[in-house]
Amino acid sequence: MFALSGKSPGKTRIASDGRDCEGGRVLPRILRRPARFFAKVFDGEIVIPRFTEAAGLVGIFAATAIYGSVVSGQFAGAVEHATSALGLAVSEVEITGHTNTSEVAIFEALGLDGFTSLASLDAGEARARLMKLPWVETAAVRKVYPGKLEIHIGERKPFAIWQTGATLALIERDGHVIGAYGGSGFNNLPLVVGPGAETAAAPFMDLLSAYPSFASQVKALIHVGERRWDVRLANGVTVKLPAEQPEKAVERLLAMDAQNQILSRDIASVDLRLGDRTVVALTENAMLRREAALKAREKAIKAAAKRSSI
């Protein structure tokens, strides 16, 4: 126990039992250690260095500046610039896995510039920003000190080009829209047309995959009334399939083609919607040739009849 007594001018005397030498007051426990320290300072037992006051003022000003930057929202920027100056700026970026996502788009999403600090960069937040890019399905961000950032991108896989009205978009297998189609590239993808086609196309293509000689010729799929499909082949022929059991109609068409090479003829469409008949429409040129052939035949018949009557 110790006590603080102020009876002697300029000095404070403390006893080991917590009372002053003349039996003065006893201070509360929480104040005894600071009181003992200041008593030793006043008695000359502790000498404070000459620059302590200046250092204390600098500390107060520094704390005030930090507090002000935190309140004004500039603390993070100050830390970033400070750590960049210490050699922790992002100086190298390694990007892998991207094909349809440009490096410029990745840099813009992360806000990278010459002053971005690797220490202050939040990898989780950076990943979340990358996930907002249209082609990005998965993203991984790894910081390698002192200044390297490793980014791996997993991109979405386009399944088809979907047309609604005048709008073209790239879609995934489940119908998810990746983004607008710019009109170039992806020539190997089928075109699917009409409302509901984006989600119905994949199951229908799976059905056609059982007939590879037919599926390999498919250029476009038109969803009619969200019930059935018109299939546009690479040679321009349109095959109209029924809503019920379209696979049976495809089998019938393939049998006809094996026998008569119907799909190699100059025709515009094959209508298989009725189970008991097949309606074939000729192209315009084929119609003109057919009309010319019929007229020539009619003339030949008339000429033969005239000769026989003489």
Results as ranks from 00 to 15, higher is better:
residue 257 D to R: 04
residue 107 F to D: 06
residue 65 A to C: 07
residue 98 H to N: 14
residue 132 K to G: 12
residue 100 N to I: 03
residue 232 R to V: 09
residue 33 R to N: 10
residue 164 T to N: 14
residue 234 A to L: 03
residue 245 Q to I: 10
residue 272 L to R: 02
residue 134 P to G: 03
residue 177 V to L: 05
residue 250 V to Y: 04
residue 259 Q to L: 13
residue 130 L to C: 12
residue 124 G to Q: 09
residue 282 L to T: 02
residue 222 I to Y: 08
residue 123 A to I: 02
residue 102 S to K: 02
residue 30 I to L: 08
residue 148 K to Y: 10
residue 287 M to Q: 11
residue 152 H to T: 14
residue 223 H to V: 13
residue 40 K to Q: 09
residue 213 S to C: 05
residue 44 G to R: 08
residue 46 I to D: 07
residue 268 A to I: 08
residue 28 P to Y: 09
residue 40 K to C: 11
residue 17 D to T: 03
residue 91 S to K: 05
residue 160 A to K: 09
residue 68 G to M: 15
residue 154 G to S: 10
residue 255 A to N: 02
residue 100 N to F: 11
residue 208 L to Q: 01
residue 101 T to W: 06
residue 81 H to W: 12
residue 26 V to R: 15
residue 286 A to I: 05
residue 59 G to T: 07
residue 123 A to P: 03
residue 206 D to A: 07
residue 119 A to E: 14
residue 25 R to C: 11
residue 19 R to W: 08
residue 4 L to V: 08
residue 288 L to G: 08
residue 288 L to H: 14
residue 28 P to S: 15
residue 232 R to T: 11
residue 97 G to Y: 06
residue 118 L to Q: 04
residue 208 L to Y: 05
residue 45 E to T: 06
residue 42 F to D: 14
residue 168 L to R: 09
residue 55 A to V: 14
residue 79 V to M: 11
residue 200 A to H: 12
residue 286 A to D: 04
residue 135 W to R: 05
residue 20 D to P: 04
residue 148 K to W: 13
residue 101 T to V: 11
residue 288 L to W: 11
residue 207 L to P: 00
residue 31 L to P: 00
residue 295 K to E: 14
residue 300 A to I: 02
residue 230 D to K: 00
residue 307 R to N: 14
residue 164 T to R: 14
residue 219 K to N: 10
residue 32 R to S: 11
residue 260 N to T: 03
residue 17 D to R: 06
residue 127 R to K: 15
residue 137 E to D: 09
residue 58 V to Y: 14
residue 55 A to W: 12
residue 161 I to S: 03
residue 180 A to Y: 05
residue 191 L to E: 07
residue 117 S to I: 02
residue 157 K to P: 00
residue 274 L to H: 11
residue 26 V to M: 15
residue 207 L to C: 01
residue 103 E to M: 07
residue 298 E to I: 05
residue 100 N to P: 04
residue 94 E to T: 11
residue 173 R to C: 02
residue 158 P to A: 12
residue 26 V to L: 15
residue 13 R to I: 15
residue 164 T to S: 13
residue 265 R to W: 01
residue 159 F to D: 04
residue 85 A to D: 15
residue 79 V to P: 00
residue 240 K to R: 15
residue 236 G to L: 01
residue 238 T to E: 03
residue 267 I to D: 00
residue 77 G to S: 03
residue 36 R to D: 10
